[in-house]
Design a protein around this nucleic acid. Structure first.
Length: 693
DNA sequence: CTTAGGG
DNA sequence: CCCTAAG
């Protein structure tokens, strides 16, 4: 029997690898327990700040009439947001409790949300595609107060949106997004700015100020969000950070009012929230199917089989007995794999993951916090405060405000603002209020069956992680990044009476540099600016977004060592892969904690894996890798081993329990057969290790 | 660096 | 996928 099997499998014995061992390093993650903790604290602080923030802008000469305001960009000043109960950006100081509360309840869609409802129910309408594969959510504002509310509304102007989240609401498991920056965003941004300058902008609220890259991004992202990614065939949006550091957070309005603080805020909630998310997440579809507990199963299984030798157990007779089916030895070319592996990503419904592109750098909360606080109290912001005056000033700073304004066109919001602003600063001081911060580049993948609460948690976690990484403030004036910190505001062109077309603050991740960006098939030319452009790749399959690619001079760092093979597939697969930006080995300290994005195996990959294992057997993963996945840099031998493990599991469970893209039964049968066969082989070689019944 | 397993 | 112990 054995012999027969061998024949069937084409077992040829161990083959010495022809290729030199490639150096594959297993990434080791640094454990920054301590740092994490500190960072989290910082994050909390920041969040608190964010929650309270409102950007206050003041102009010297407030305009009385809304019309004038509209016409004259710079005459407007905004002091505070209208007191609208619904408006998020109140100046209220967030106390600890409120902050926390906001954080936890920030997700609002057109009113109340049923926590228990599946996301799909809530959100599908906006992002539904025929395929139902994915819903894209764009977080227009990550205002703690407003949450997603704005973002979900189609009518809302997108410009303000910075953070985007793609959610795979349906079948597909895929979501990935980093920042949803449209390629166009860059230009968009400029347009916005120019509009402001021209005074042509139709919306008062349109924020130019926000010019931040993010802002522009927002716009596009928003639009995208309105339609399901999956629906857009062939559409790809990529984000390309020109700069090394993709802006993480944008402060639209710098409102000085940062409340208070942070230290007091209970971080437990935040942490807890994030933790919960994790718990909720179901990363390992295969391993952990709801019904079958992998671990438990495995354990249960073990006892039966053999002591200590896992393989032995595998050798379950029944499987082994199965007629060995002919294995097809056609070898899949790597190309094929490459082409395919990204192509089919859909399938898994239950998966959740999120990733944040930047993190790990110690967050200087104090710095930020202090700034804002200062501005608040005094209204004089010397250090970093600027004021913008554009028609859209309202928006400028904060997207939140702009959104609102749009909503309430009836009375010129401007007017309202105007009235409220009681401060006329004659002096040269510029007052800014940071209304909100936007959190870009969040990856969230969540099953459509998830509850709103789960999504909230996911968002919370993402934000927390993001903030945890450490931030620095950046300023963008007229679409250009201000790099010289030594200049005075006046020199820079920021003054109370100066008209600033666009002034924006950004919170950038300190760690961003260390984070790899992605490469996309399309290389984008990024303007000299530092603006990152996000790219979202989607193919016909569920959307998968991969993060960002770093581009220099419009040139993508294709030669980056880490660059994953980007298949030349036309549009079938994802072209984007995370890459380490520099050739240098990333410092663990900074990169470490980044979890790789999940890339479900395509059927083609599975087939290649099965084929390879049939020939090589289990236990020679490096060879399997070389044989079948040599070109798939993102598949390590450990990945293959893990995949095999899950395949075996998948094959054993009922089809109903399987998730993700269905694997042809034929392949699963081969998996079981091969598994049984090789298990048997091992038994033969190490019979002593196990006592069989 | 590889394997093998648990998480 | 991650993390690790072992080899």
């Amino acid at each position: 029997m054995v012999a027969q099997k061998r024949i069937d499998y084409g077992f040829v014995g161990y083959q010495v690898p022809t290729k030199p061992r490639a150096a594959r390093s297993t990434r080791k993650r640094d454990t920054f327990q301590t740092r994490v903790e500190n960072n989290q604290m910082c994050a909390i602080d920041l969040l608190a700040t964010v929650a309270s923030g409102t950007l206050l802008q003041e102009k010297q000469n407030p305009i009385t009439s809304s019309d004038e305001l509209m016409k004259k960009d710079q005459r407007r000043f905004v002091k505070e947001e209208v007191q609208d109960g619904n408006k998020p950006f109140k100046a209220e100081l967030p106390d600890e409790a409120s902050c926390e509360k906001r954080l936890q309840h920030g997700f609002v869609k057109e009113g109340s949300v049923d926590m228990n409802k599946p996301l799909k129910a809530e959100l599908s309408d906006e992002g539904s595609s025929d395929r139902k594969c994915i819903s894209t959510l764009s977080l227009q504002e990550f205002d703690l107060n407003s949450g997603l509310k704005e973002s979900l509304r189609p009518e809302i102007d997108d410009r303000s949106c910075i953070a985007s989240i793609l959610t795979s609401s349906s079948c597909s498991e895929r979501l990935v997004t980093d920042t949803l920056l449209d390629v166009k965003s860059h230009s968009e941004m400029k347009n916005i700015t120019s509009k402001v300058e021209l005074g042509s902008s139709g919306f008062p609220d349109c924020s130019d100020c926000n010019l931040d890259v993010d802002v522009s991004i927002v716009k596009d992202g928003l639009r995208n969000s309105e339609m399901p990614i999956g629906a857009e065939t062939g559409t790809r949006c990529f984000k390309d950070p020109i700069d090394d550091k993709p802006p993480v957070l944008v402060v639209s309005d710098g409102n000085a009012k940062l409340s208070g603080h942070s230290d007091s805020i209970p971080r437990s909630s935040l942490l807890k929230g994030s933790e919960n998310v994790t718990v909720v997440s179901r990363d390992d579809d295969e391993n952990k199917s709801g019904c079958a507990h992998p671990s438990s199963k495995t354990k249960a299984f073990r006892p039966k089989t053999c002591i200590g030798d896992q393989r032995i157990r595998k050798r379950l007779a029944s499987k082994y007995r199965k007629v060995a089916r002919e294995s097809k030895h056609d070898t899949l070319s790597n190309n094929v794999l490459d082409r395919n592996f990204n192509t089919v990503q859909n399938g898994r419904k239950n998966s959740y993951s999120h990733q944040i592109s930047q993190m790990n750098i110690p967050f200087k909360k104090r710095k930020i916090f202090d700034c804002s606080a200062t501005s608040n109290s005094n209204g004089n912001i010397r250090s970093g405060r600027t004021y913008y005056s554009t028609k859209n000033d309202i928006n400028q700073g904060v997207s939140c405000s702009s959104s609102r304004i749009r909503k309430d066109p009836g009375k010129s919001s401007l007017e309202a603002y105007h009235h409220r602003s009681g401060l006329k600063s004659r002096d040269s001081h510029v007052k800014l209020r940071i209304k909100s911060f936007r959190v870009p580049e969040l990856f969230i993948e969540i099953p459509e069956t998830s509850t709103v609460a789960s999504l909230k948690k996911a968002v919370m976690e993402a934000v927390t992680t993001l903030l945890r990484g450490g931030l620095r403030v950046g300023m963008i004036l007229h679409g250009k990044k201000l790099r010289d910190d030594s200049k005075t505001l006046l020199q820079t062109g920021i003054s109370h009476d100066n008209e600033l077309d666009a002034l924006g603050f950004t919170l950038e991740s300190n760690a961003s540099q260390s984070l790899p960006l992605i490469c996309a098939k399309h290389s984008l030319n990024v303007p000299s600016g530092d603006m990152p452009i996000s790219l979202i790749g989607h193919s016909s399959s569920p959307a998968v977004v991969f993060p960002i690619q770093r581009i220099q001079g419009g040139k993508k760092l294709s030669d980056s060592k880490e660059l994953v093979t980007i298949p030349e597939m036309g549009s079938e697969g994802l072209d984007i892969l995370p890459v380490n930006q520099s050739h240098q080995k990333p410092k663990r300290t900074e990169i470490s904690q980044r979890r790789r994005i999940r890339r479900p195996f395509s059927v083609a990959e599975v087939e290649a894996l099965v084929e390879a294992v049939e020939r090589l057997g289990t236990g020679r993963w490096r060879d399997v890798k070389l044989r079948a996945f040599d070109d798939a840099k993102h598949r390590t031998y450990v990945d293959l081993k893990d995949k095999w493990k899950t395949l075996v599991h998948t094959a054993r469970i009922s089809p109903q329990q399987r998730r993700g893209e269905p694997v042809p039964q034929e392949l699963l049968d081969r998996v079981l057969t091969a598994h049984a066969y090789w298990s048997q082989q091992q038994l033969k070689h190490h019979p002593e290790t196990c006592l069989l019944l």
